[in-house]
Design a protein around this nucleic acid. Sequence first.
DNA 1: ATGTAC
Length: 473
Amino acid sequence: MKENYYQKVQLPAGQVHVYAGPSLFQALDYKVFEMANNNLQIPNQVYMSYTPDVHVGVGTCIGTTAVWNTHDGYVSPSIVGSDIGCGMRVHLTNLHKDELKEVKLRRKLVKTIEKYLPVEDHARGHFSDIRLEHVIKKGLHGLPKKYIPDGYTPRKATSLTHVERSKFHFDENALNLFPDRVWHRAHSQLGTLGGGNHFAEIQYIEIAEDNREVAEAWGLFDGQVILMIHSGSRSWGGSVSQYCGSLMAKMMRAQGIGTADPHLLFGALSEPVAQNYVDLMYSALNYAVVNRHLIAYAIREAGKDVFGSKFEMSTLYDLMHNYAWEEEHEGNSYFVHRKGATRSLPPNHPDNPEPYRLTGHPALIPGSMGTSSYIMVGSPEGKTNFHSICHGAGRIRSRSATKRLITVDEFASSMRVGTEDEVVVNQKSLESIIDESPQAYKDVDQIIESVVGAGLAQVVARCKPMATVKGAK
DNA sequence: ATGTAC
């Protein structure tokens, strides 16, 4: 059974481990293997794999897990990608889907969310009282107390404990690299959603019977309304990539190293330039988790406006799919890159945050617009892939090809526009976000089937979209 | 993904 969902592909520069069912594997573009062959030329690499949502990116495919030993490791800003710390967050509400049955009410909710959450291009966030320097250095711990509505007491501190990591330590001298305008822009963007595939979505839950016990331990119930957020480190992460990328390209030229792809940047962790990148990448991870936290904060305010003070929203989990960091696996220290890949730890794994030690933590996997998203949990067998699973559906069409090939009517019918099940979208014109239509993506159900079939993780709940908030240019 | 220049 298992071998149908896993292929070891031998390339001139090394092996790439591909987790995908037969039809997804067959459909892969040969370019993903060209890209793997370039990535495998980075020295000392010990493991590289693709999840079934893999597709071509800049320098590296989205859907890559790439691993080095820490002691002779390399870091690649191209593998991490430019949206450093991009990831997912889910909040549970105390609403049942029947309370949002009326399309009119979903429209009102979306309108109210837009009051608190800026979605226009270049819009400023509503958090100018927050010191950027504090959150850059201390992550969630750098926020004023009023933005941690769950409080700091151990039992209730879900905003700080139900996250992959609430704070990243790094050498703060690295921050001197940036001019004032980088700081100003990042400050004004705190608590904004961004564009592209980023979204905030109101969904409802269907629990998977096989994992009902886990679902209930996490506080899920059938028909529960939840909030799913997908966003990243905005321009701060972009600046880190750009500044550090150009320094690393310069170092590579000086050292005479590289591959066939000039976009593929990397350096030995022992180099000061690489260490500087790691420090600043961590600053962007701090920014990203705070940004998602503030987006949730804004939406909680909107929820209280629409449903009254009885409205409650607790943090299920926040985790990332674009980053690199140190991890221990079976007593050895590794430097693990995940680019469009999600960590999914099994029950009893010591790296689970305390509230999820016994069950494994929730792994949050978004679908494309109008389709299901998933809440997963890792399986012990996932260790063969360093506990990485997919990060979403994965693109099959470029933005330009989607605009050319897909009509607004096709998009609208995928969103069930005009029916009582309509997924209400904030953007008046679907045309402005057609490059995000489900027709641009692989079928997420098939991706999840591959991940489950390969034994990497299990489904805890399927999440059906009810209303989506998107940014657009 | 993002900001910016064309």
